[in-house]
Design a protein around this nucleic acid. Structure first.
Lengths: 341, 341
DNA sequence: AATTAGCACTCAAGCCAAAAGAGTGCTAAC
DNA sequence: GTTAGCACTCTTTTGGCTTGAGTGCTAATT
């Protein structure tokens, strides 16, 4: 059933007011503050119908109404008015990126920081794994007799923390030769091309079979199972919000955000067609704590996905502000990184 | 004034019991549980003298005694008995490092995890900046027309996130030539040697003056101002301890541990001569929240400092356990890394 | 001189009842 | 369909009362 315009308006008021004050919204309050032409009794009957429809709940029989998750969803998709950031906030964003736009890593870190500062929520980001990225160079450094650090540089980044084991008896010269051969074969190919290369494991790979197999294995591990870097900022911001006045809640929240894999799945399960993704607690998203919301956006530049940025906070979240910040930061990052390439 | 043996024993009992139970310790309790040959009245007079001396305090006139920071300090330096880890705990440590001992990065991360798991406190680590480390290779990757990623590999690690700006008009061939020259000059020198090299800035550096200057600058920045990596684990562990049942306390704690620079100074201001460093809230350590303690140890292998590891938690900390864990993890790491090099 | 039993005193914490206040639902009138 | 009025519900606050754990002091004991 489609809601009447007045019901929508009332629902919008309830959500706006509750987001703002965190206090259950009463019929009298609505009538006095927002709809002085309608009596509280009328609003009362509207509210009880909205409750029947599942958009509102009460903490107890004689309390005001608070929005349900359904209400938040409707609010975000239909009821909410878009908000613009203040000139001060926009300047803040621009200045941060002016200072720290020299490389992609710094842009990444600054973005996370800005988002947390401006929204007052814990912000999160993961960099995208980009399988169209082409390999630029592979280089071995023998750190220990049987282990080498493998640096893998692509057009966009340097992959860290890749190690392979090498035969003890291999000389440094042989290792270098193998390094050269691997580069010849792999450079300018994408990860997926390399991984799907018709590799004949019976072939001897110019005598360096073990090394070749190990490198391919390392790439596969990196690409398919490898840990993605999760950056987080403002873990303490959550405490500024009223719903986290209770130690048990804090416990639950912290236990989620200290688990990297949970965060990762929160940010990567996005619907790719939508620019801003919103996940509101409970329904289907097992990793989100009850009464929690995750809002995220994936940024792209030059046709490549850069990463997914977002915030996590109570479902009573200032969606207007969060969405405005994510959109603005996004467009600034994208313009910086599109510009000079 | 030197404490009598009995006062020491009583103080030890109070600290042990308080660490264990978090409940103010009463004269009756001491007499019944630990000193059945002495009456509570006698203990009462001892306690009030210990209070006079500054080792104990009371929450209110009719409560039991709790240890002061002075008491914790004395406890750690004189009163505490050393504890051994259980076979189960020792096995846990060994198994973790068996699995993940393939490279120094993984050892680092595993250590932080193990320490947090076994102690039930938030654990921290910073890797040491080692100025005796010799440069092994420098390599440029031009990512953008005017920026290059500079990989700096030393005998022990790969330095990340170093970028220099390069003249736009420079060709890739010239950049490579410059790279070769820099390697010739710098390889096998330590950071401090390079930074103190008599560099004649009027000289042309084979025509690549800008690049040379920028690389030296990058090294200096990295070495003198560069951010050190701080790793943290178990940020939520703090909530398991009674003193953090209060949201304000949690706020304070989180606001400290989310500030990287504060953590850094907590771990690096150590007295280098002592193996285990203990800092107990308030006195002189401005970055430690009130009623907080930091216990840390610096690990070395092959004569090189690897990093400083520690935990942060309430001053009512299980020092016995923490110290035992830090010592055991330390000796295992050191043996692993000494072994194969 | 050190130790101890005994007792008065203090203070936190738990409990209960009463009062205040904010909201709602319902009904009857407009 | 809207509204005023009123009874009813439930939370929150307050204050008093009780209980109990613990101390400090004093006088007796060893």
């Amino acid at each position: 059933m489609e809601l009447s315009e007045r019901k929508k308006r009332i629902l919008q008021i309830v959500v706006d007011d509750y987001i703002d004050t965190a206090v259950p919204v009463s019929s009298k309050g609505i009538s006095e503050k927002y709809m002085s032409n309608i009596s509280s009794a009328t609003i009362r009957s509207e509210l009880s119908q909205l409750e029947e429809l599942g958009y509102l709940t009460q903490l107890h029989t004689s309390s005001g109404r608070i929005p349900s998750n359904e209400a938040y969803k409707l609010y975000v998709s239909e009821l909410m008015t878009k908000k613009k950031l203040s000139a001060k906030e926009l300047n803040y964003i621009k200045n941060i990126f002016l200072e720290k736009a020299d490389n992609i890593e710094n842009v990444f870190k600054s973005a996370v920081k800005v988002i947390s500062e401006l929204t007052n929520y814990t912000s999160l980001a993961v960099s995208s794994k980009e399988d169209t990225d082409k390999l630029r160079e592979i280089k071995f450094f023998r750190f220990k007799p049987e282990t080498a650090l493998v640096l893998i540089v692509t057009d966009y980044k340097l992959l860290k923390d890749n190690y392979i084991s090498i035969p003890k008896e291999m000389t440094n010269e042989q290792l270098e030769e193998a390094n050269g051969l691997i580069n010849k074969l792999f450079v300018n190919k994408s990860f997926s091309e390399i991984c799907s290369m018709e590799v004949d494991f019976n072939e001897n790979f110019y005598g360096y079979k073990t090394i070749f197999v190990n490198v391919i294995e390392a790439l596969k591990v990196y690409f398919f199972e490898g840990e993605q870097e999760v950056v987080m900022e403002g873990e303490d911001k959550i405490l500024r919000h009223q719903e986290y006045a209770d130690v048990e809640k804090i416990k639950e929240f912290l236990s989620v955000i200290t688990k990297k894999d949970k965060i990762l799945s929160l940010l990567t399960e996005d619907n790719k067609d939508i620019k801003i993704n919103i996940k509101i607690g409970e329904d289907g998203y097992e990793h989100i704590p009850k009464d929690c919301s995750v809002v995220s956006a994936t940024y792209t530049a030059n046709g490549k996905k850069l990463g997914t940025y977002g915030v996590i906070g109570p479902s009573r979240m200032d969606y207007q502000k969060v969405i405005a910040v994510l959109e603005n930061v996004g467009s600034i990052i994208e313009s910086i990184l599109n510009k000079d390439n």
